[in-house]
Each structure stands twice: as C-alpha cells, then as structure tokens.
Design a protein around this nucleic acid. Structure first.
Lengths: 216, 216
DNA sequence: GTTAGAATCTTTTCAGTGTCAAGATGTATT
DNA sequence: AATACATCTTGACACTGAAAAGATTCTAAC
C-alpha cells in the first residue's frame, strides 16, 4: 500500500509524522511547515488538518514520538552497564545528551511548552515512560525499589525529589546548553563525553553518599 | 522627541527593541512578528530592515538586551548576600530562575542558537558579562581570585571547568525545565524556591568540599 | 447488496508574514 | 549649495496557517 493511487492514503497520519521528522532533520524548525509536510507526503496542503488540527497538534505528535525514541535510547544505554551505579548515571546522561545531539530539533520541540504542552497530570505514555526511566535511575542510586509506569505520579519522598532534581536538571542543563552552543568555549568537542562522565560520576557519588548517610 | 512628526524617527532602533520586548511579554513568540513590531513603533513594515536586516537580526538584539538584564539581576541578587557562600549560590540560582520566570520568551530566545547564534569566540558584552558573573560565583566558592570581563575566554583549570559545569548546568536545567512546565508535578509552585535553595546549598557544599580536598 | 452517514482528502479562498526593490525624504559632508 | 548617504515608505511577491465547501471513499445499518 501507500502507493498513492487511491484517494484515501491509508496511513497518512504516520506518513505525515515521518515527513515531519525528515523535514526537521533536514531543514530545522524554520523549514518545517504544515504545507511542506503535506508536500513530502504527497497530499494536499489541507490534508494534515483532519489528523492533527493545527500545526501545534502535529508538533505535539512529533514530540510524543520524540519521547518514545528518547526513552528507548536511555534504556539501551543503561541496560549495557546495568549494575554499576556510576556507569549507569553516565549512561543515562550520555543517552540524554546524545539524543539532543542527534535530534536537535526534536529535543527543542519536546521542551517547548509554548508550541505544544502536554497535560502533565495525564501525559502521553512515552512522556511518562521517560520520567519513569529517569526516576528509576535515581532510585537505584539510592538503593530503593523501582517504580512501574503505572504508578508514575506516585508518592515521592522529599529526599528522592531532591535527588531527581539534581540529577535531571544537571543532565538536561548540560544537554541544552551544549545543544545551543553555550559550552563550546569551555568544553572542547573531542573530550566532552569525558567531561560528562566526570560530572556523572560526581553526581552518582553525591546521591549515593547522601542516601547512605540518611540511613545511619 | 519620538513625537513622530518627522520622517526620520530619531531612535527607531531602540523603539523597535522596546516594541519587541513588549510584544514578547504580551503575546509570546507567536505574536511576535517584524510587522507587529513596526506597527507598535508606528513605522512602516519595512522600516526594521535597515536596522536589523532580518527577523533573526532583531531577535539577536533582543537576546543581547536580555543578557544585560539577566546579568544585572544576577548581580543584584548576589550582592545582597555577598560573603555567605551558600547563600551566594542560592542567590545566583534564584536570579537565574526568576529571570526565566519573568521573561520567559526572552529566556527561550536567548538560548536558541537556531534563531540567533552569537559568535561565541567574540560574544556581545552582555553575554560575556553573564558568563563572567557565573564564573566568579564558582571561583568564590572555590576560594580563588575572581576574573574580570576582559579576560573572559581565559585559561581555566579542569577542576574549575568541572565546577562551573555542575553549577551552571544545574541552575539552567532547573530554570528551563520549570519554565517548560516539566517540574510541575514534582515541585509544587509554593515551595519551589525552598527546593531550589536546598539544591543550591547542596551544590555549594559539594564544590567547596572538592576544592578544599584538592588543596590537601 | 444497497444506501445513508461518517471519515478522509482536495480545492478554493483569505488574511497575514518576511523579504526585496524602488522610490521618497531627511542629514551630513564637502 | 550640491552631492552622497542614511533612513523610512510604498508596492510587490511568494509563502504560510486556517477555514469553508466540495469530492471521494469507507463503514455500518438495514
């Protein structure tokens, strides 16, 4: 199918999302337009409306798929070093930062509540999965039991929140600042991963120490 | 002046920047257009071209003024608690985060290299001043001599870079994630500053300890 | 199997945008 | 005073997102 001889496309929604992905990678947000997506998918310029409403609707869907890819990348990286807490921390950071590097426009869109904001009290599954994955990284650092996707909003101790914050903010800040070129003068491209590794280890130590102290 | 009876405006450049600021605050980036700025400044739609070239040029100038405001806000907050290292760290974080809260669109633009990217090897003064201020916060935490704006690119030890990174990334990550609504479910609005304070103190301690250990 | 009704896509239209080129008007230099 | 330059306006163009109305196909009830 998808030979486009029929009036009905058959899978236009996904075709448009693929087109959006490609356009974002090739031309960035500037070259990304509803009409361009439609052209790439070989449909009329008004076709996207039925599936996504307006341009923000399309971006929301793009972001949703972005989170799915992010969480997949995170889990792959983490799985490879499972057991070593410091390496787990670094793997998480690396997955996060690498995603921002490979899909810069997606990353930007995923964190722009002016373009598309999810209802955070009931976020899409891929978003919840991402938060769950990040939370579980911290939980393991603290030697506590992991959580499942279902109990995402879940009750969290203040100490856990503190650790999640310090971990996530750090990684996100690094990814974002680097993506926007603000770290270039401070962190040479060739050894930026080594730098990130150092920072990750440091954070891992900080969190482990804190939760260990708290137990005594 | 600026009564606009003359053909030449007299200070159109600043008038357009003011209009841009106002539009960004009122309508956000969506409602911000070259033509809208021109309308607000009561000039023709093509008038901005001569001063800023294209829309990115205008945004670059807007961002430049944004950094000036940011560094001013940072220094005000820091000055108020000068001497107490932990409070200095918190003051910095608070200034940064508060700026993102008060000028959300400016903050977004200031960190979007796709819209406008400064030449970081020779950044505008306000940008360099911001980096200098942030660096000096860390230098004081480490008990080292501060730097002046002039020697911004300056040589930095690896340990210093590590500390700057962990400090800046954390604060920036917090500011950005909060601005984009990602922390809402984890950090209630009413006590988010207390949370930030905790994190700041923690970082301050981490940095102070590390540099103290390094000396022995 | 037919047929209403819903879903999907196209065509047309409209206001709005950024950018460019050419012209108008004021300023500054000599 | 004349000429060059800076500043602003006017008009045009291709492009955009959105809405409305029409065309085509699918679906489900009968």
């Amino acid at each position: 199918m998808a030979v486009k001889a029929t009036y009905h496309h058959g899978d236009l929604r996904n075709a448009l999302l693929d087109a959006a992905d490609e356009l974002l990678q090739r031309e960035g947000l500037q070259g990304f337009t509803l009409r361009a997506c439609a052209r790439l998918a070989q449909v009329s310029h008004a076709a996207p409306k039925h599936h996504f409403g307006d341009v923000n609707g399309l971006l929301r869907a793009v972001a949703e798929r972005g989170y799915a890819r992010l969480v997949e990348q995170l889990e792959t990286h983490i799985e490879a070093v499972r057991g070593d807490l410091q390496e787990e921390m670094f793997a998480t950071a690396r997955g996060y930062v690498t995603f921002a590097e490979e899909y810069p426009e997606h990353f930007r869109i995923m964190f722009r509540s002016d373009l598309m904001s999810f209802d955070m009290s009931c976020p899409p599954e891929s978003v919840a999965a991402t938060f769950t994955a990040l939370t579980n990284v911290i939980l393991r650092q603290r030697g506590e039991a992991e959580i499942k996707l279902e109990d995402m909003p879940g009750i969290r101790s203040q100490a856990l929140v503190n650790d999640i914050l310090i971990g996530w903010c750090n990684v996100h800040g690094y990814a974002h600042l680097r993506l926007e070129g603000q770290l270039a003068s401070m962190v040479p491209e060739e050894d930026h991963l080594a730098q990130l590794r150092t920072a990750s280890f440091r954070l891992s130590e900080l969190i482990q120490n804190a939760s260990r102290d708290a137990k005594n």
